[in-house]
Simulated assay, not measured.
Amino acid sequence: MLKSFDIYNQNNVLKIIVALNLLLVGTGSLLYTNRLINKLEDREKQYVQLYSKSIAYLFDTSHADAGDLTFVTSEILEANSSIPAIYVNPDNQIAMKRNIDVPDDYTPEETERFLRQKIADMRKNHMPLPVEIGNGERGLVYYNNSNLLRQLNYFPYALLTILAALSVLAYLAFSSSRRAEQNRVWVGLAKETAHQLGTPMSSLMAWVEYMRSDPDQFDGSITDEIEKDVQRLETITARFSSIGSIPTLKEENVNDVVRQFTDYLARRISTKVKMSVTSQLPPGQLIRINKLLFEWVIENICKNAVDAMKGVGELRLNMVLLPHDEVAIDITDTGKGISKANIQKVFSPGFSTKKRGWGLGLTLAKRIVEEYHNGRLYVKSSEVGKGTTFRIVLNRK
């Protein structure tokens, strides 16, 4: 157990290290991306300012003879191939646009409305830049971020999504590793327990044979009960030995299996617990089960019920047919019940409301039913102070 504990601690340390690395990478990338976006925004703003000055230069009549400069200015205007921009002259008329696709089938009126809507959208993102064209007149250049900058704005969200996905994958990997290690620990513990039980059981069987050899001194009925308990220990040993292995399923009469086992169990629990078994199944109903493991499921649920009733109450088992070729076994007690907060936890390893025990009985029962028998085990109903019903569902075929 100490080895297992160290492994879990190491996994926790690795989880923290991975989480910190992801946090550092994410924070660093976001800061760098934000800095890059700000620089690009400033650069595009400077470019639009240059674009505005070029427009002002072209409309300034004082430069009418400066042909070469006008050519250079035109080159600056044409060089803007990525930043959407619209120039509105002092009369509030749209005089020029760049990098805005207008549908070819639009009428002049539709084009005007389309560009005015673009201007409204641009105004939400950036203040328009003034264009001084002389004589106290001023136009405005409206602009928006380029496609590259808009895409870059979404990059942090994409990065966060990727980091979140990596975090989930890392968590699942560590959780899977931990569950696999837990399984190895419990399998090893179960097989070692089975091995350790072998020697005292052999000795007990020898004592039973010795007692049978002298019936005058030893009461035969007592010897029979001792032999049953030794056989019971053999069954438990076989169960522990089968953990971690794929069990063999055989067709068994489920009515007989449940009744025979509950008859045995009834003589070994509190005499103040009234146990009853009813069945609506056909007398010869066969189910493919592993008898040893299935009896273990019944035992774990029943013993858990007896503990919940503190040794006083009623324990009822009822077998019924379900649609879709299924059989249900309901195990009902009159115990303290399970709170809604704990219903989802009762099958979790280590969960227990009792002072004794490891909280593994119901966990093993659920695993045996669902993983080995392809069935279902769940809390059908529970009411605090009145009792609980567990339901086992198995396939008839």
Rank of each mutant, 00 (worst) to 15 (best):
L30R: 01
L31I: 04
Y32L: 09
N34M: 09
N34H: 13
I37C: 01
L40H: 05
E44K: 01
K45D: 08
K45W: 05
Y47S: 14
V48W: 05
Y51N: 07
Y51T: 01
A56N: 08
A56H: 10
A56I: 01
F59H: 14
D60R: 01
H63Q: 06
H63T: 02
D65P: 07
D65W: 12
A66E: 14
A66W: 08
G67T: 11
D68H: 10
L69M: 09
T70Y: 05
S74I: 08
E75D: 11
L77F: 11
N80T: 10
S82N: 07
S82E: 10
S82F: 01
I83A: 04
I86Q: 01
I86A: 02
I86M: 03
V88G: 00
V88C: 09
D91P: 00
Q93F: 04
I94N: 00
N99Y: 04
I100G: 00
D101H: 11
E110S: 08
T111M: 06
E112G: 03
E112C: 04
E112S: 13
R113P: 02
R113Y: 09
R113S: 13
L115W: 03
L115N: 03
Q117P: 01
Q117E: 15
K118G: 07
K118N: 08
I119S: 00
K124V: 12
P128A: 06
L129T: 14
P130W: 02
E132G: 04
I133E: 09
G136E: 00
L140K: 11
Y142K: 02
Y143V: 07
N144F: 08
N144T: 06
L152E: 12
L152F: 14
P156G: 10
A158H: 03
A158Y: 12
L159W: 07
L160W: 10
T161S: 14
I162S: 13
